[in-house]
Design a protein around this nucleic acid. Structure first.
Lengths: 213, 213
DNA sequence: CACCAATTTTGCAATGCCTCCAAAATTTCA
DNA sequence: TGAAATTTTGGAGGCATTGCAAAATTGGTG
């Protein structure tokens, strides 16, 4: 089923606005660039920008749909005999070892993080994102373990796993902003992951182990 | 040395604005009430409000000076033979057992939390507060342990202890908003603290034990 | 008391995010 | 081609926040 001209143009317009906005933000910072600037550069009206993006932050932090499910997906996909925490640590190690851009291990990520760093609204947005990640993780843990409704454990475990993930991401961001190169940071974060695993309690590391069959 | 008339009036004006603002926010919510409303109710100009409070959020979240040091203070004051985490858990248990208003265990705290709950800027402010608490804790841990500059452990331990604290505070807030009464919540959170302690790793629970002498 | 200096309060203008609403332009389809 | 649906646009306005300079208040001095 072919996609209509209308849909295509909408998608293109949206993408163009997002790209131009991102470019401007990377160049001049988030606070400096106004929505009017973006609109003018994209050759649309200010209202059209608001047609596609509810807030200014959405212009910069667009592709976050897959990251909100990341931890939940990793947990649901854990191996037989593997716990939720172990699965997340394993996936984290794989990404870090592969110097994956998904975690920010890429050339130019420092510029991106710097923009976020000195724009409070963007940092605030990342916090709510982290919250969503953790909520989804908690929901996944509840489903996977069939925990009772009043059981606080899934929330607590989600908090611990979320902390580990958040710590890794934050460290990568900090080091990249500091000007380090991705491979260096990768090596360092692998060591950090070992430290993190050593800190986690047995209960955490053995929660929601996937049974046989 | 007596305090001049000028200083006294300043302090009084500031307090009056803060009180009136808090009252209005509790009554009508944070988003609904404008700064102009506050100014009019306090019988000052809008600019005078900004003279005392940098942002609207500061009108509601004023007295936060002591809370940013809380965890660091608790750690610095830990007993001989007691670890940092143990000290924080002990202090938390004492506050919860005493149904202390400092953690939100008081009649009327639900209204306060409800205002925060549905005002994104206020929640955002609380996140930065939590960050400050944790940074101060990390600094305290570094001082107390004399950890090397590059050692990631103080930061990680601060993260774990901060998580425990944050979890307790968040739970209290959630339950109070749900309409539960303080004593009930106190009992529940004591159980939660046991769960939390069971989840923490040995390394965390034994970090920065205060030596003899 | 009268006056000067420091401090505080206030008014005014402006910027920027964001919302609402209705008119104009564009695209789809019969 | 023409009506219907959709998108774009313009304009007005609310609100937080900032900057600036005038006006009011206060403290101390002669």
């Amino acid at each position: 089923m072919a996609e209509g001209l209308r849909e295509r143009k909408k998608r293109e317009t949206r993408q163009r606005i997002s790209d131009i906005a991102t470019g401007l933000f990377l160049e001049h910072g988030f606070v400096t660039v106004t929505i009017a600037d973006v609109a003018e550069a994209a050759d649309v009206s200010v209202n059209t920008v608001y047609n596609y993006f509810p807030t200014k932050e959405d212009l910069f932090l667009d592709r976050t749909a897959d990251v909100v499910d990341r931890l939940a997906r990793w947990v649901r996909g854990r191996d037989v005999g593997e716990s939720a925490a172990a699965a997340v640590l394993r996936e984290l190690r794989e990404e870090v070892l592969a110097v994956s851009p998904r975690l920010g291990l890429m050339e130019g990520y420092d510029r991106f993080m710097r923009v976020v760093h000195d724009a409070p609204p963007l940092r605030s947005r990342l916090w709510t994102l982290q919250q969503e990640i953790q909520d989804n993780l908690e929901a996944a843990l509840r489903e996977e373990t069939g925990a009772a409704a009043g059981d606080p454990l899934p929330g607590l475990i989600a908090g611990q796993i979320g902390w580990a993930h958040q710590t890794v991401v934050a460290t990568i961001g900090r080091e990249m902003v500091a000007g380090r190169n991705p491979r260096e940071v990768s090596r360092e974060v692998l060591a950090l992951l070992d430290d993190i695993e050593e800190l986690l309690g047995e209960k955490v590391l053995n929660y929601a182990v996937r049974g046989d069959r």
